[in-house]
Design a protein around this nucleic acid. Structure first.
Lengths: 221, 221
DNA sequence: ACCTGAACACCGTTCAAGT
DNA sequence: ACCTGAACACCGTTCAAGT
């Protein structure tokens, strides 16, 4: 598996990501990917045990597009940078992003992003024992939001608001009725994403303050 | 599409969910589902335009397993109840849950859950204009966490920690190195989920306090 | 009204065979 | 060392035909 030329392997992954970007993840078949670079589907089995392994490689390749945060950034700017990068990668390869949740994050590029989040949370002053939890919490939200945006979980739902409420007996949906005016208003997704991130950064800052308090309590006046 | 007997339609959806629970979502083919109830694949096209529509119906059927919160619960308990229900449904139908993010939430059962969240956030005192954002933020996390748990994004990643770090030059992963002891420790996922939810409830409470402050400012002493 | 047989254009994967 | 032809057991979907 690993003996074969790495350049050929990379060529296959690039072709697969290209097919996914052009025609969606459903069009990524062993035959189609191989044909794109003048091979037959059976040739790919020299480089990947099966299609799942190829899909894992596609995820790694996609995440490799995430740029490292500039070195001068503080912890808040670092997290904001990574969040923005994940979102922009998601827009570049919409149909690939859902795979992020379906498969374990083991590619080198995924581990790099996790490591940068670890560092940022430590610099924020979060107790080390709490850092992995916060990393999972924040990355779960970031990836989930990215998928929701590109797969239409948000937008189609809100476009559909009028018919959605007509569909059911209104007395069964008191929440929707009370919020009627706000549900029909268009949403500024960029602003919402920033607001959500700000809330997360506040949670991190609050956690750090609590931890500092426990470790080195300051006398109350 | 809608003229055909509803009971037959429900029978098909039940069969599909059964196949998914037993053999995974990949085994849910039109032929397999139809065969389970003594039909041919082509019969299903009288009830669903295509396979995607059947998958949407499966999601709706799965979410219908979520129980309504008891009427006496306060807003925190309501959100905790819904979060626990989503997680337990995810464990019941692991391979179906990833579809939640891939397709819009338009089924009646999905809308019911959203409505209950709307109500809880309003009762918490969140400004109505902020309620839809908070609903999306919290449900994105809840669904994302459920998928991550059942699809192994978390567990395989952390089981693999040792080899993961060996795999890369350690000087490139300063975050992992600083957290070494905490990355090898086993994780109590129930406790982590509760801690994450508590953080979200704090965000909601903080937002509500801020909004109350704006609407009816209290004179400072 | 409800269902099917036959057919089309696809899949992933294996295995023996080619150069 | 690298690749392919042929084959197997599947897919989703359409359409004309059955009762």
């Amino acid at each position: 598996m690993r003996k074969l030329k790495d350049s050929r392997r990379a060529e296959i992954v690039d072709a697969a990501l290209f097919v996914a970007a052009e025609q969606g993840i459903k069009a990524v078949s062993m035959r189609a990917v191989a044909a794109r670079i003048g091979l037959t589907s059976m040739a790919l089995y020299g480089y990947f045990r099966n299609k799942d392994e190829l899909l894992d490689a596609i995820i790694g390749r996609m995440l490799a597009d995430i740029s490292r945060p500039a070195s001068g950034l503080d912890w808040r700017e670092t997290i904001r940078h990574l969040a923005a990068e994940v979102r922009s990668v998601a827009r570049r390869y919409p149909s690939v992003v859902p795979l992020l949740f379906t498969r374990p994050a083991v590619s080198p590029s995924a581990i790099m992003v996790i490591d940068l989040l670890f560092e940022a949370l430590l610099r924020a002053g979060v107790e080390p024992a709490q850092v992995p939890r916060m990393e999972r919490m924040i990355s779960t939200f970031i990836i989930g939001y990215a998928i929701s945006e590109v797969s239409g979980r948000f937008s189609e739902g809100s476009l559909d608001t009028r018919s959605r409420r007509a569909q059911l007996r209104p007395d069964l949906l008191p929440g929707h009725r009370l919020l009627a005016e706000h549900l029909d208003a268009p949403v500024d997704w960029d602003a919402e994403y920033q607001a959500d991130l700000d809330d997360f950064l506040d949670v991190v800052a609050g956690l750090a303050a609590r931890d500092r308090g426990h470790r080195a309590p300051i006398a109350e006046p």
